[in-house]
Design a protein around this nucleic acid. Structure first.
Length: 308
DNA sequence: CGAATTTGACCGGCGC
DNA sequence: GCGCCGGTCAAATTCG
């Protein structure tokens, strides 16, 4: 228990593709030389530093590229798995076929079962689109049941979970879009009120959002998005979980555009990074090579500890 | 003063 | 048909 605090828990996994040591190098050398030698020499070293810097930039750029490729692979695998899972699920429920049991309950409430249409708790915009296409098709098949007045966008339902301070009573989540609250209700299945929002980013945007604290964990805000934005995302290139972009390619552009972002974008960036971290974590835990390496490292550590 | 939020009333779907 | 419930409306209120 408490022994963990004193233990060295570093595992020495040989998995660090990202060597972060370089930033400290240059200034150190620069300082050394400038204090001991004259201006001319300093310039020489500066040139040297510049070339080193260029090298580092190239290296970082290629690493960035690698990461992008890795991420693409991870995403592809994720889609494939998700698709597979979907197939299995639809096969599992005989007869009814989970195509949203037409007469059951009130309209769009399957999402109340913790984001069913998306399958589980994901924040992925792209994979949702993937799923939504099929979900939409199914709904179109069933559209004879009820006239969908605005558009079949209504079928697009996604659930996103946001961490929230449990002391914070405002049911607002920062997803980059501009929302206008039009109602609030206390529902039966959850003591905390549910807030209803419309997208006010564009006047005719049909997207709606419901935000409610999770009944199980009040520190989590459950946002349910319905519909598709008919405008560009908050920063014109990326949207939130419901943004329309079909092929939301995730870019990890860490080399370019350093420090020219606006403060508001930092939030979205943070969310994006959080999402990426989740994605990477889940893909790592699903990676047998990684888990094997992890297990080996842990057992190695344990052996070492038991020896000492 | 205009925009945003709040909140009670109302509406429509669904189960009994 | 009635009552329950989720969703929406719109007048009142608050805020910047």
């Amino acid at each position: 228990m408490d022994c963990s605090s004193s233990l060295d828990i570093s595992l020495n996994l040989n998995t660090n593709a990202f060597d972060r040591s370089f930033p400290a190098k240059l200034p150190e050398e620069e300082v050394k030389v400038s204090t001991s030698a004259g201006v001319e020499r300093k310039w020489l070293v500066k040139d040297k530093s510049a070339s080193e810097l260029r090298e580092e930039l190239n290296r970082v750029y290629s690493e960035n590229k690698k990461i992008k490729e890795m991420l693409e692979t991870v995403c592809e695998k994720y889609y494939a798995l998700h698709h597979h899972l979907e197939k299995l699920q639809s096969r599992k429920s005989p007869g009814i076929d989970h195509i949203e049991q037409p007469t059951k309950k009130r309209k769009q409430d399957p999402e109340d079962f913790l984001g069913f249409p998306n399958g589980k708790t994901e924040n992925s915009s792209s994979n949702q689109d993937h799923h939504h296409q099929q979900y939409e098709q199914k709904n179109q098949l069933l559209s004879c049941k009820r006239p969908v007045t605005d558009s079949f966008n209504k079928a697009k339902v996604s659930t996103v979970y946001f961490p929230a301070d449990s002391s914070d009573t405002s049911l607002t989540v920062k997803d980059g879009y501009q929302w206008r609250k039009y109602g609030q209700k206390v529902t039966r299945d959850n003591p905390s009120p549910r807030a209803y929002f419309r997208c006010s980013f564009a006047p005719s945007c049909p997207v709606k959002k419901k935000v409610q604290r999770s009944a199980e964990d009040p520190s989590i805000l459950v946002a349910t998005y319905e519909g598709t934005h008919n405008h560009l995302g908050p920063n014109a290139s990326e949207g939130d979980a419901t943004s329309q972009g079909g092929s939301s390619t995730v870019t990890l552009d860490m080399v370019h555009h350093g420090g020219q972002r606006l403060a508001t974008e930092k939030n979205e960036r943070g969310m994006m990074q959080e999402f990426l971290v989740q994605q990477m974590a889940s893909s790592l835990t699903n990676d047998s090579n990684f888990t094997a390496a992890l297990a080996a490292a842990i057992t190695g550590r344990l052996m070492e500890q038991s020896r000492t």
